[in-house]
Write a protein that binds this DNA or RNA. Sequence first.
DNA 1: CATCGATGTTGAG
DNA 2: TCAACCTCGATGG
Length: 333
Amino acid sequence: MPEGHSVHRIARQFDRNFLGRTVAASSPQGRFAEGAALLDGSEMTTVRAVGKQMFAEFDAHIWLRVHLGMYGAWDFAGEIQADPTIASANGRMGQTNQRGTLLADDPIYDGAGENSLSSIGAPRRARVHVRMSEQTTGLDDEDQQWPPAVVGQVRLRLLTASTCADLRGPTACEIRSAEEVADTIASLGPDPLVDDVDEGEERFTGVVRRKPTPIGLLLMDQSVVSGIGNVYRAEMLFRANLDPHTPGRDVPEETVRGLWRDWTHLLSIGVETGQMMTMDGLTGDAYRQAMAHRDDRHWVYHRAGLPCRVCGTEIVLEEMSSRKLYWCPNCQR
DNA sequence: CATCGATGTTGAG
DNA sequence: TCAACCTCGATGG
């Protein structure tokens, strides 16, 4: 999935384009017809992300809970407001785009899957053309329809007068009460973008230091800490020089605190850039190389059998609780 | 065209 | 521990 950073980006997109607006809701695929009918014609009054889940409140009482799972994604079309808090790479700030185009003077919004604002979630090709501000080519007939034609399996479509959001492939998409939402959130570990970071650090450290469970599993446990998935897990353990099998209670306290602070750091980079950049600190050619090739962006993730970037030892791939775990047996111990 | 795999979670056994 | 769930791009014939 889409680890925590993606969900925060999605929530921000809804905040900009849907909050305070009346939405038409439908389930083109039919599997969420009942829920969509409940939402149809109501106003989005709150939207927030906690870990890998998004919660949106409508008419100040009904909540929509969405978990993208491994394959889920939101596709945005129409008017898409860029994040004004993030300066684009060329120094300009985001600005409102025209209908039917995606604001794209930031190379980050390059139209390719995760990197595109128009599709956030599982890696897949954007369904809406991205048009650079200088270019006038672009939209074909299909894109000019409003609302956009439904393509593939769309569980839920939310539509304002000018923006369309299509949800496909979620593991969870359901109507919940405010109380149920509160219970769900209460069951989750701290999220650096939701909780006070110092309180989060205490909670995380307290739990980890008490458990016999391998740290490689604890980082993936959403009741211990929210938002970390398989990529960030592997990368954070490498960055901490930590053997994934070390029981939580045997990890030095300062190392545990360091893991929390690193997650805080990586999450903020991820939300800003839309990419799981874990080799931050790179500059110049090394940076460009890492950004250009998906497989060059990580220290260990997806690098089984390749030489460790630091020591040259072969990166090991093992199954841990039926998820693939990549690590360097020399650097991490 | 068929098959596989993926940034995930749940629940049965 | 393992299968089921969900979708679609990548891969191989």
